[in-house]
Simulated assay, not measured.
Amino acid sequence: MGIIRPEDEGWTGALREVAERQRAELDLHPPPWPVYGLADSVESGWLAGWSRQDGITVSIEIGYGLPVDESWLLVETQPRTGSFFHSLDRLLADQFAAQGRDYPVPGELPAGSAPDLPAAPRSQPVEVMVDGTPTSALVQRVEAYVVWRAVLDEVVVTVTGRGVSTLPALVRLTDLDSYVSRRGEHMTALDPGPRPEPVPLTGPDSTQPLWAHHGLLAMTIARRAENAARRALNRPHGRLDAEWGPRWDAAIRRQQELREQSGTDARETVTAMVAQVGDLQERAPWWRRDRLRQRALNEVVWVTATGEQNVRSAAAQLAWSVQPEAGLDAWQRWADEQGWAEGRG
């Protein structure tokens, strides 16, 4: 099944369908540990999300408001065993990234960890009310964003928010049904509205018929390199470039023209092209050699856009599409055969 995006038709209906399916799933698999929410906001909280690992629920999020609101809170409950915990810095950095901003704390951020909690060097101790009892916690603020974390007997509760000065009292939720029932309503509120008209397909078609494919790969390659640098610092990925959607659409529509494929088939073909190139970028030792990299890009684009197999890497491309590990080995043989792997590339 393809991915439904906000600009696609049927976005709202798809959200409702997903919400109902997830509601039924959670009903069948309630967590064996307590879930927390705000004591005085029973009527406004909603099930914002959850995570499962090996069939076991490892996180439940209760939202109060939406990220587009001036103020909002997200209460995440995780069991103390079997969970991975992000650092407080990373949780705050995620909020800045969602706004297209860099986190205004320089350098490497503390790494997430399990089973112990990660370091929180910029936090301050504070008391919060949990089930009517003052409880020790940590708090960290950066500009309008704030995050609290409290360790309880069975769970760790982390509250992230914006535009909130004091954390309201927390209480164990005895019935999640009302929170689940409001999920669809809040997800639908994120509907971006009518789908915009497609951007006209323009480019140097006569002299560079594969311009859209190469443009998309140039963008995704740069994005992967940037993301790798951010991961090394335990920082979130930045906001996508405004050209991200238009370049994907241009490559998909150009693929439809060149191969006479349906929109679905063209999207799958272009996605596979990007995935293969991304894998080579991350794991092929020869990728750093300029001439090898450029030849590989030219050949991958050629096979994708024409369907022809008359390039030397065709067998490697086919092998990768079946089994990426075997494909990487085949690509290495291709690189060796070029005569450049020992430094002439």
Rank of each mutant, 00 (worst) to 15 (best):
P246D: 03
R224H: 11
L138V: 11
V105S: 13
R16W: 04
V139R: 02
E7W: 15
F96L: 01
A272K: 00
T304L: 01
D191Y: 00
L47E: 01
W244Q: 15
V151Y: 12
T304E: 00
G107A: 00
T135N: 11
A225R: 14
G163K: 04
A114S: 12
E127K: 10
R182Y: 05
A229L: 09
D94K: 12
G2N: 11
L152V: 12
L170K: 07
A218Y: 05
R5F: 10
A98H: 04
Y64W: 12
A341S: 15
D336N: 12
G161P: 13
G65M: 01
S87F: 03
P125V: 05
P104V: 02
A119H: 05
L138W: 12
A232I: 01
L167A: 10
P198V: 06
E43Y: 06
P285N: 01
I56F: 02
A225G: 14
P168C: 07
L66Q: 01
A225H: 13
P194T: 07
V147W: 13
T269S: 12
W211I: 02
P134K: 08
V142H: 12
Q276E: 12
R253V: 04
R52W: 07
P196F: 08
D8I: 09
G163V: 01
Q256I: 04
V274P: 03
D175R: 03
S206D: 15
A251Y: 13
L170D: 10
A150Y: 03
I62L: 15
R122E: 00
S262D: 06
W46S: 03
G45E: 11
R291N: 05
G82S: 02
L318V: 08
G263Y: 15
E268Q: 15
G339S: 02
G184M: 04
P194I: 09
Q53V: 13
V139M: 01
I3Q: 05
G339H: 05
L47T: 01
A229Q: 13
V151L: 13
D69M: 06
L217I: 10
D265G: 10
A335F: 08
R122C: 02
P30Y: 09
L216C: 07
G37T: 10
E70S: 14
W244H: 15
R52Y: 10
R52D: 09
D116H: 12
V303P: 04
E70M: 10
R149S: 00
A24G: 09
G307E: 11
W50S: 03
Q22N: 08
R162T: 00
D27V: 05
G184Q: 02
I60C: 15
V157L: 02
W33C: 13
A189M: 00
W331K: 00
A305F: 07
G184V: 02
L297W: 02
V199R: 11
Q140W: 11
G55A: 05
R52K: 11
R183V: 03
P104Q: 05
A228T: 08
W11E: 06
S71E: 12
Y36K: 03
Q95W: 03
A275C: 01
T81Q: 08
R231N: 05
V142K: 11
T220C: 11
E154A: 14
P104S: 00
R293G: 01
R90F: 12
E282T: 14
R80W: 03
S113Q: 14
D102P: 07
D265V: 13
T264E: 01
G37W: 07
S59Q: 13
W286Q: 14
E342N: 13
F85K: 03
